[in-house]
Each structure stands twice: as C-alpha cells, then as structure tokens.
C-alpha cells in the first residue's frame, strides 16, 4: 500500500501545493520550493516526528511533527492555531487558506516540511495592533458570516485581495473567492463586504 509516508520519500515529483484550477484561483499556488533543497530535507527526515521551525504570524515556532503532516495539520495540531479550518483536506474548498509570503494558498495541500523559511500568516495573525483588517470588519458589518466555518479562509482571500488591490472590481472579488465553498450561502454578503471594505479604504 502506498501512503503519503511511503510515497513521498521515493518520489522525485514535486508536490504541488494546489492543483491548478482547484480551490486556489490561478494566482494562489505557492511558489514551488527549490526541488533539490526539498529532496535533501526529506531524505534526512522521518518517518518519525522531527523538529521543524515555521515562521507563523511573524514568530519563529519550533515543534515536532511527522514529515507527512500538512501545513494545515501542523497549524491546527502542534501550533494550536485552530482558526485555520479543514473541510475537505484535498484542495477543493479553500477553508484552510493561509498566506505564504503574503499569497493565499490552501494549507491542506502543502507539507509543513516544505514550507521552509517562507512566512506563514494565518487568520490569527491578521489583526494588526489589535485592529481588525478592513476585510474582517466589513465581514461583520455586512453579515458575511453564518456558521463561520468557511469564514477564516474567505477572510484570508479577501484580505489578500484588498492588500494587493485596494479597489478591486466585483469580478476580481469573485475570482478571489471562486475556489471557496460556503454551504451557508454567504457569497453575496462576502462580495458586498469586500467591495465595501475597498470603498472604506478609498475614503
């Protein structure tokens, strides 16, 4: 039987963090890590828990985890940052969206060991100096939240969009959230909130 544990050390294939066209809109795949470096790392590690360091929300965090653990699992498990949600665990729903060096990615599709020294930002790290990101405030104001399970991922994508493009078009907002699934049906309010946040940023 081939598991992630047995497959990866044997494989020369780069492990993509997001399937093209899945969860992540086109702009969302993380930059491929240097394949050679990554293979070196893997050759030296596992299958048992190993020490890893991740820079999360500006802080270098050391922890132990098996090399097969995904970034989403490491965040939620060893690092106890449970704001990042796993809903499909295969790159379909974008609930697990975090930023790698400021770019949204689906964290269930990248191994923690592959993150390297790229900066991870999670929903917990979006508050700056105690202030909500404008996207977060707008989500509350426009009730772009129901059960809230998809919300951290939605917020991460909309906040990244606003940081990159403070005055996005409606279509740009739809593109940013087109990989996100929300069963409660918050999409209309998410779009309204993000557009409103951009207007507030304008004035």
């Amino acid at each position: 039987m081939i598991s992630r544990r047995t497959f990866i050390p044997r494989s020369d294939l780069p492990v993509a963090a997001a399937r093209p066209g899945s969860g992540a809109a086109g702009d969302r795949s993380p930059k491929e890590p240097e394949t050679a470096t990554r293979r070196d790392v893997i050759a030296a590690q596992g299958p048992d828990a190993v020490a890893m360091t991740l820079t999360v929300n500006g802080i270098a965090r050391m922890f132990e985890a098996e090399p097969r653990v995904t970034l989403a699992e490491a965040l939620r498990g060893a690092l106890a940052l449970t704001g990042t949600k796993i809903a499909c665990n295969r790159g379909t729903c974008s609930s697990c969206t975090v930023w790698l060096d400021g770019t949204p990615i689906v964290s269930c599709m990248i191994l923690a060991v592959d993150v390297g020294n790229r900066a991870v930002t999670t929903i917990e790290g979006l508050i700056r100096d105690g202030n909500l990101h404008p996207a977060q405030a707008a989500f509350i104001g426009h009730d772009a939240i129901q059960c809230g399970f998809c919300t951290p991922g939605m917020v991460m994508s909309c906040a990244a969009l606003l940081d990159r493009d403070p005055r996005p078009t409606r279509d740009a907002v739809l593109a940013a959230i087109s990989g996100h699934l929300c069963r409660c049906g918050t999409y209309p309010h998410v779009v309204a909130a993000t557009l409103a946040a951009s207007e507030e940023a304008k004035s």
């Binding site: 449970t82 949600k85 929903i123 979006l126 909500l132 989500f139 509350i140 939240i145 809230g148």
Partner: peptide, 16 residues
C-alpha cells in the same frame, strides 16, 4: 444588529 460572535468568527477565535 451585527452578529454577536462575529468578531470571534472573523478572527478564527471561536471554537468548533
């Protein structure tokens, strides 16, 4: 009225 637990939900603080 804005959602009572809205802040917890947009910051990921609410516990599922």
């Amino acid at each position: 009225v804005p959602r009572q637990n809205g802040r917890e939900k947009v910051t990921g603080a609410i516990r599922y």
